[in-house]
């Protein structure tokens, strides 16, 4: 039982649409776990379930052995202090500068002196290459810069668990390399546990200790990067090599294109 997070037979649906039909996975302490899967499959949803922002229909999510869905509000907020999440959109506070954004969790949750906070913030910004941008407002950042600033904010308090939602999206090869290294270093140096949701197969394979691949409401493949690469599952291979044809559907569920075109054509 060295798992920081355990997900057990989780079912979840949005309205009539089932997103998860009984998935189970473990996130061992101190490891980097990658979650991959087609767009719209529910990866962000999974992170929100772990963070307690959504409640599963059934099944359980344990954080340090405690059930997140059945926690009281107070204990949920206590548990959230030990985790942090990098949102897909960054979600920087638009009414404060990059510096204040990164300083925000420190100011809210600690009683550190302003000079110490300044030091810590500048160090975090340095590690994502944005120290020079400290005084800019979020609206003055590019998409990739905003993502990195949000990353600096997410790691400001050195939480035990970091949930990264697409940390590499919109990064050039150099910043991508820096971020991959940063996530790895956080893991090694501070023994943080990371969950990385991403589409960048090669990058994540180089840092992940364990990989889960989601498709069609289930986990279709899991294992160490080595095992995944050698997996014989057609589904997994299709995903890794980015083939449009195969068992994993690329399209959001719909009628066949022919039907749809004929239908709209017919009504004229």
């Amino acid at each position: 039982m060295n798992d920081l997070v355990t997900i057990d037979n989780l079912h979840f649906s949005r309205g009539d649409r089932t997103i998860y039909e009984g998935i189970s996975l473990n996130i061992p302490k101190g490891k980097t776990v990658a979650v991959m899967g087609p767009s719209g499959i529910g990866k962000t949803t999974l992170l929100r379930l772990i963070g307690g922002q959504l409640k599963p229909d059934s099944g359980d999510i344990l954080f340090k052995g405690q059930s997140i869905p059945s926690m009281s509000r107070t204990s949920l907020y206590k548990a959230r202090r030990q985790m942090s999440m990098l949102f897909q959109s960054g979600a920087l506070f638009t009414d404060m500068s990059v510096f204040d954004n990164v300083a925000f969790p420190l100011r809210e949750h600690t009683n550190l002196s302003e000079s110490l906070i300044r030091l810590m913030v500048l160090m975090k910004l340095q590690s994502v290459g944005l120290r020079g941008a400290a005084d800019l407002m979020p609206s003055e950042l590019s998409g990739g810069m905003a993502r990195r600033a949000a990353l600096a904010r997410a790691i400001a308090l050195d939480p035990e668990l970091i949930l990264y939602d697409e940390p590499f999206a919109g990064q050039d090869p150099i910043s991508m390399g820096v971020l991959v290294k940063l996530i790895k270093e956080l893991n090694d140096a501070l023994n943080l546990t990371s969950v990385v949701v991403t589409h960048d197969v090669t990058e994540v394979m180089s840092i992940a200790d364990y990989v889960y691949i989601l498709a069609d409401k289930h986990i279709i493949g899991s294992g160490t990067p080595q095992e995944i690469k050698q997996s014989e599952s057609e589904l997994v291979q299709q995903f890794l090599h980015g083939q449009a044809d195969g068992p994993v559907p690329f399209h959001f569920p719909a009628n066949t294109l022919e039907d749809e075109l004929l239908l709209t054509g017919g009504t004229k």
């Binding site: 959230r80 942090s84 999440m85 959109s89 949750h109």
Partner: peptide, 22 residues
């Protein structure tokens, strides 16, 4: 409303800061 749409309120919640209070 815009803070909600840009996930700023969600991100406060995930930082264990109650958006109602903050």
């Amino acid at each position: 409303g815009l803070m909600k749409a840009t996930e700023q309120l969600s991100s406060l919640e995930m930082m264990a800061i109650d958006p109602l209070r903050r």
